[in-house]
């Protein structure tokens, strides 16, 4: 069992309240996943030639200033870093293709959680209320976000196995359920040069869908292929730079409910996570059908 939450605000003035509206959703879903939590928040995209990288350090008192200085020295470029304990978001004008190998070589203890122009990732082990507090989730602003509370079934409880999983740029996925053929998917993707960072089943689904999109599929076509290739039980909530997408497998053993108003689209595993939202009494409420693709654009 895990909990899923997602929120996309339709009105620009609500972007300031994104985190504040979401935190009670995540805390309510702690009952479904009490041991880890995480989220991807999508800010408006930064300039086309710029990139930001979400980084995870092994300790809360990590020397981020030293890291930033080493980065600037190596790339000879301007960079800024936004620090939140053991997480930091580095913004620069270097591509992921250049930053990733340098990071792996020079700072192997740092884990790159995300790359792109819009997406920041925070995830860690601990009770979701504590994780939300630790990283001040209620202060987050942006257009949409994808969150998760984890009760592990397929791999260990560690920060890197918490959701969301990411692949490529500005693409993330959270999952309630279990994939039965993750190693088959993994072997297939490894033939295409795709590298995995954990032994988690959700990572296979995430990398599979992102791979399909890099091969030219749009999100909906990739998800349609996912119905054929990914075996197992799942509710997936996917975030991209400008979209939120929701699917359930054919047997729909894992729950989800959607509430939509003129102000927002909210997704959760259970209604109780949505009960506090403003205007919920007049929201259009529905459960996603098995193997139907639901997506919303910013």
């Amino acid at each position: 069992m895990c909990g899923i939450v997602g929120l996309l605000v339709k009105k620009p003035e609500l972007r300031e309240s994104l985190g504040r509206l979401m935190v009670p959703m995540m805390v309510e879903m702690a009952a479904r996943g009490p041991e880890s939590a995480g989220l991807a928040v999508f800010t408006g995209p930064i300039g086309a030639d710029r990139r930001k990288f979400s980084l995870y350090a092994p300790s809360w008192s990590y020397d981020w200033a030293g890291f930033e200085a080493a980065f600037i020295q190596h790339f000879g470029t301007h960079a800024s870093i936004d620090i939140c304990g053991n997480h930091a978001v580095l913004e620069c004008d270097e591509s992921a293709a250049r930053v990733k190998p340098w990071l792996a070589e020079t700072f192997p203890q740092l884990h790159m959680l995300a790359a792109g122009r819009a997406m920041d990732i925070y995830k860690d082990i601990g009770h979701p209320a504590a994780v939300a507090d630790r990283y001040d989730f209620s202060s987050l602003t942006g257009t949409h976000l994808v969150g998760h509370t984890r009760m592990a079934t397929e791999s260990a409880v560690t920060p890197d196995r918490a959701h969301p999983f990411t692949a490529g740029e500005d693409f993330c996925l959270v999952h309630n359920g279990t994939i039965s053929n993750p190693y088959m998917i993994r072997r297939k993707l490894e033939h295409h040069g795709i590298r995995f960072e954990t032994d988690n089943d959700t990572e296979a689904a995430c990398r599979y869908l992102e791979w399909r999109m890099r091969e030219g599929d749009d999100l909906e076509t990739a998800l349609q292929k996912g119905f054929e290739e990914l075996d197992g039980f799942y509710t997936f909530l996917i975030g991209t730079g400008d979209k939120l997408a929701l699917v359930r497998d054919a047997f729909a053993c894992k729950p989800a409910i959607v509430a939509e108003t003129d102000d927002y689209v909210a997704v959760a595993s259970e209604f109780r996570a949505l009960a506090h939202l403003p205007g919920i009494d007049h929201a259009k409420l529905f459960e996603p059908m098995p193997e139907e693709i639901y997506s919303w654009k910013v």
């Binding site: 259970e270 209604f271 109780r272 996570a273 949505l274 009960a275 506090h276």
Partner: peptide, 11 residues
Amino acid sequence: RVDVENPGGRH
């Protein structure tokens, strides 16, 4: 008769 107000999706 018992009225249950603000059930809020409780189980």
